[in-house]
Write a protein that binds this DNA or RNA. Structure first.
Lengths: 345, 345
DNA sequence: TAAAAATATGCAAGCGCTTACATTGCGCAT
DNA sequence: ATGCGCAATGTAAGCGCTTGCATATTTTTA
């Protein structure tokens, strides 16, 4: 994309009657240039409307000030808030966000990771840790900092910023059990290649086991994250005999799909059946009843992830080294109304 | 970000025993290299794990295969679906998406546009057309293709991909009026620097005027796009005497905020008061009642915008020229239940 | 006041790639 | 055999910037 008359560093240097090195310094390390010269140079920059050529800068400086993110989807709100905070934070640090989405597919994710790195991403935000080890090898060889978000593990090989999905799901299940529910079902996200979905199932199982719930009374059905499939999963679950009194959902989208179907079936929530969600996305508070769900600190997660990456990129620039750095965030249950005691028999 | 041992074109050339030019051609214009050589080169690429250096490529080729988008926010779902489709389409064309958000602020948007261009964006997606003319001048001088989305105007200077917000809002208002409502209020988005919000207000006014509604019976209150402010706006409106029988909202977020408050006030929707939305985001169909709203073809908008930009970038690469190209999309009203006839007096 | 130290600026060598142009090698018509 | 045209490949000149090192200038110190 040639721009015939876009001014270059050299044009500015000529106009200000200094060398290109000085102009470069004015822009990047102004404290290394005496004020008088600097003013003259900046005036020339202004006058010519100069703005640095990105490719040249990236080539010479060996960094792009660009941070990439590969998220499963932008369609629904699950990652939107976190991504927004992430973006705001890196923007504040004079970097830009490069986004790609994988549609929850491992092969596409791999492709996108490579594409972002090829595009010069200085660092990467990834969701979860379920991916082929080759990708981690690739990132390690390339020395690209990355953080795995929406998940937390005690594993010093990676940087994590997130929470313990399993424990959070378990806490929710404990709460359901504490209310007296014994026949419980779960609508989980598709667990293949999705560690968050998987951990949430495990958490619910943990609680069930701890309470001596008969495993044949814990029905788990997987459904993609959309209302219709969740609704169908709910119908399926409700055909069971005896019918579950509580349906724990792997996220709020699933919970809302289930809620819709419950109403369509003439079931009252939570009087006839309780439904819980996970994520606490915006939408969870506007349904009737609003969804009792696990609150996830979306914005904080995005922001902390960005901060860690920025630190790692800086460290790498200074010493060619950077260390993994993780941060566990807290979740808590938001009581809203879709969870109540089981119906009296 | 130096990567000491990342292979370069030259390494590949040496390994395959050809010149760097040939390697470059193998990668970019494979048909210009005879099969035998090409195979050898590609094998070397594979063996070394070569991937081109982005900065160098951008510098030499004068294009980045990167398309930028500046959207008001990623927080809620208004732009998410469209952006997702946009991203998918440009990814299919071997380009990457660079995103920035402006938080609905004009100054930040301007900054972001310049930042994306400086980052080498080959083209830009912008929302609406309310911005200073300097930005358009800047883009024109730089010859950066851009499309203005979520809006459509008959103006050959820009490329538009969107719909007529004013006409769509008018259609909704007509529908409300046709049901017999005469005391109508509107909760609009903040219209300052937001052409979509403004046009939607104008559309409602158009309808009111056409039906001879007394303007003092058309109460318009502006609110930022969030549930709480919308709810407060609703309360305010309901204090009017006589009380409006229908509240037309500038988008679904506002409508849902209003709906929540209506319920909290003990008002039945639509029996006591009707509420309508705009955008048809996911959330609009899960409330109780679901929101009667204007359906906007989000995904199509994102896709068409991407296609136009890709075409313009290609045209510019070939002939240094490109022409604006617009596309108007259709919206339609989705009847769901939050709009009904006015209560009998 | 001269020398040493600190500061400001210039010089020029890349960074890794693309591409116009030059060269080579081949098949074919003569 | 000879020469021509064309396809395949090589040569090398940038693309616009950063930065290590050299040089010039100013400030500090003795």
């Amino acid at each position: 994309m040639p721009n015939q008359n876009v001014p270059t560093l050299e044009d500015v240097a000529r106009a200000a009657n200094v060398s290109t090195a000085t102009v470069s310094r004015c822009l990047n390390t102004p404290e290394r240039v005496v004020e008088k010269t600097r003013k003259r140079v900046l005036a020339a920059v202004e006058a010519l409307g100069y703005s640095p050529n990105f490719g040249a800068q990236a080539l010479a400086a060996r960094r792009t000030n660009t941070i990439g993110a590969v998220i499963p989807t932008m369609e629904n709100a699950i990652f939107a808030r976190g991504l927004q905070a992430f973006q705001e934070t890196i923007a504040r640090n004079k970097s830009t966000l490069l986004v790609a989405s994988s549609s929850y597919r491992q092969d596409i994710e791999e492709e996108q990771v490579r594409a972002l790195v090829a595009r010069g991403a200085d660092a990467l935000l990834l969701i979860g840790d379920a991916r082929k080890s080759e990708i981690y090898d690739f990132l390690r060889i390339r020395k690209i900092p990355y953080v795995l978000a929406w998940i937390f593990k005690d594993d010093a090989r990676h940087s994590f910023v997130g929470f313990d999905n399993r424990a959070a799901a378990r806490a929710m299940a404990e709460k359901v059990l504490a209310l007296g529910h014994r026949r419980i079902a779960m609508i989980a996200g598709v667990t293949l290649h999705n560690d968050r979905a998987r951990d949430r199932v495990l958490g619910v199982r943990d609680a069930a086991v701890a309470h001596g719930v008969n495993m044949s009374d814990l029905d788990v059905v997987e459904a993609p994250y959309n209302f219709d499939d969740a609704a169908d999963a709910f119908s399926l679950i409700m055909q069971r005999e005896p019918r579950p009194t509580a349906v724990i959902c792997g996220n709020d989208i699933l919970a809302i799909g289930a809620l819709k179907r419950a109403k369509a079936m003439g079931l009252r929530v939570p009087e006839d059946v309780s439904i819980t969600g996970f994520d606490d996305i915006e939408i969870a508070e506007v349904t009737e009843p609003a969804i009792t769900t696990v609150h996830v600190p979306h914005r904080q997660m995005g922001q902390v992830a960005a901060e860690i990456l920025i630190r790692q990129v800086q460290s790498k620039a200074a010493s060619r080294e950077f260390a993994p750095e993780s941060r566990e965030l807290e979740t808590y249950i938001v009581d809203r109304g879709s969870l109540g005691p089981p119906p009296a028999v």
